[in-house]
Design a protein around this nucleic acid. Structure first.
Length: 524
RNA sequence: GCUCCCGUAGUCUAGUGGUCAAGGAUAGAGGCCUCUCGAGCCUCUGACGCGGGUUCAAAUCCCGCCGGGAGCACCA
């Protein structure tokens, strides 16, 4: 019997099974994803998620603008929020930090603005620095039950004992002493580094970091929002263990670098007898071209080497928005990676391709002439005239613009140098022969014909209406040149494709005459 | 070193025992189209890390190995 079924094709086998009264054929597999615009459909469901009953959160440390790494958390959370018609909180993870890692006041607005520009709606915004009383309130029960204790070891000794799997003398002191010592911490009896609160876990835990982890410590650092109102600060795991439950979070989506925190939060919930949200993780995402170093950026911005957080070299989200990379492209880009645990490194090219698909159909074309050289066309029989050019070659409904053409133009220096003595076409206009060598003054090119011919095509700008244009590149280098007249009036934020150059986004209008019109380069 | 995670084309991803002689994207090659070095259309190149096992059947399950990553603070 088995030997008989083996060689059958799948359909025959299915039919045969049915005729034998076998099990129902399994349902047809859903069609495969066949398009590149990955959507939320490719993401797995969140465990135990019910429509209308999902609350998610994103918890950035406010020390600068959001970068592409954050985008993964943000768009994943937002996508699930939409899928389940849930809520999405922003919780500023602004405990006092450390000497090397400190919150900065301007970061709060930067982050809020980044969300707005990303088009991600927030249901509510919290600040951990407002919630210290909540954290304080939940510690005494742990002291009471012996789940946590006040440790008076200096940092060095603490580390050493942890390494040696050794308990410190305070570990087993009675609850009364613990509560009293905690009051002492709050009232200032101990100085910075003199006392911490630790969770009582397994001193033999294979990972030393788990062995009686520190929950609270004393810090005299000034906090940008609350100054020195508090001296006792919780560490990340403690504050999260409280907030994730108190704020009603149902699912925590966090980077894989934070998996250890799951276990710590769970240990605390167990001590309190609470049930917390579920966790899901995603691997670390890196854009190949992006060399990320937040502290370096902070320095370079402070010293003026970098042009703020929107400097393209930071690869911050706002730097992408400024270049004309649409949040929607970043969202697609992010969602295409799914919820994978693998750490990935992706070339920016992939993001560019998505953005290009997105903006190409609606982005008007313009001529931009880099490294311009003046050229005078001799013998054009048509004389001065107005020339109408389509804004988009494939979309006539996008209209056209009109250029006043006389005999003087700017042409791209590199193209002119490459085609000395040759015939070239000024795209959409006429054909000329370039002189073999230049003398003083404008190059004199000779008109050859008007109709289109298969010649090298150069972009051009009539000298009479050339607008100085400066394009800021991805490495913050500038390309200077001339552009078409109406670029001078293009509103900030408008996108163009500079033909044979790339996609750009217009910066603010110049504030003083004589300044070039500035653009940001998005990608080829 | 310890703990955890991950291995599908150059890169990213689909795939959860049979419809996979492995799908898509991006990159690359060629062609068509186009008055842009853009877009579009067509074709092609290219992958299940290795070795065992389970099974009629393995990219998919198990074991081992190899390779890669992350974490190991009184930072977040």
């Amino acid at each position: 019997m088995i030997a008989e079924i083996g060689p059958l094709g799948p359909e025959e086998r299915e039919a045969r099974l049915r005729s034998l009264g076998g099990p129902e054929p399994r349902p047809v597999r859903p069609p495969r994803s066949t398009s590149g615009d990955e959507t939320s459909q490719d993401l797995p469901d969140l465990p135990g998620a019910e429509k209308g009953r999902v609350t998610l959160r994103f918890a950035p440390f406010p020390s600068g603008a959001l970068h592409v790494g954050h985008a993964r958390a943000i768009f994943l959370n937002d996508t699930y929020r939409q899928r389940y018609d849930g809520r999405f909180f922003l919780v500023f993870d602004d405990t006092v930090g450390s000497a090397e890692k400190r919150p900065t006041l301007d970061s709060y607005d930067l982050i809020l603005e980044d969300f707005e520009l990303a088009g991600v709606k927030l249901s509510k915004i919290y600040y951990k620095s407002d919630r210290l009383p909540e954290y304080y309130r939940h510690l005494p029960p742990l002291l009471q039950t012996g789940s946590a204790y006040v440790c008076l070891c200096p940092a060095e000794l603490l580390r050493h004992r942890r390494e040696a799997r050794e308990a410190c003398p305070e570990r087993d002191r009675e609850a009364r002493w613990q509560l009293e010592a905690w009051e002492g911490m709050l009232s200032g009896r101990y100085g910075e580094g003199e006392a911490v609160v630790r969770l009582k876990t397994d001193l033999n835990h294979p990972n030393p970091a788990f062995r009686d982890r520190v929950l609270f410590r004393i810090s005299n650092l000034d906090h940008p929002r609350v100054g020195q109102r508090y001296r006792v600060w919780p560490l990340l795991e403690f504050s999260w263990a409280v907030d994730d439950v108190e704020l009603g979070i149902t699912h925590v989506l966090r980077g894989k670098d934070l998996v250890m925190e799951d276990e710590m939060e769970q240990a605390l919930w167990k001590a309190w007898g609470w049930t917390g949200p579920r966790f899901a993780h995603f691997g670390l995402l890196r854009i190949r071209e992006a060399k990320l170093s937040k502290s370096k950026f902070q320095r370079e911005i402070a010293s003026g080497v970098f042009d703020g957080w929107a400097d393209p070299r930071t690869w911050s989200l706002r730097s992408l928005w400024r270049r004309g990379i649409r949040p929607e492209a970043v969202r697609q880009f992010i969602l295409s990676f799914g919820l994978s645990l693998a750490d990935i490194e992706v070339p920016a090219e992939t993001l560019y391709a998505m953005n290009r698909h997105l903006i190409d159909p609606t982005t008007p074309r313009r001529a931009f002439v880099p490294e311009p050289v003046p050229v005078k066309v001799m013998g054009d029989p048509l004389g001065p005239r107005a020339v109408a050019l389509a804004n988009h070659p494939e979309h006539p409904e996008m209209g056209e613009r009109t250029l006043q053409v006389e005999d003087s133009f700017y042409l791209p220096g590199r193209d002119v140098a490459a085609h000395r003595g040759e015939e070239v076409r000024l795209k959409d206009l006429l054909n000329v022969r370039l002189p073999p060598a230049g003398g003083p003054g404008p190059l004199l090119a000779e008109f050859t014909s008007q109709p289109n011919k298969p010649l090298p095509r150069l972009q051009w700008v009539p000298m009479g209406e050339a607008v100085p244009v400066s394009v800021l590149g991805i490495e913050h280098q500038r390309t200077e040149g001339f552009g078409e007249g109406d670029l001078a009036r293009a509103p900030e934020g408008s996108l163009f494709q500079f033909e044979r150059f790339g996609f750009v986004r217009a910066d603010a209008l110049p504030t003083s005459p004589g300044e070039p019109r500035r653009f940001f380069f998005a990608h080829p």
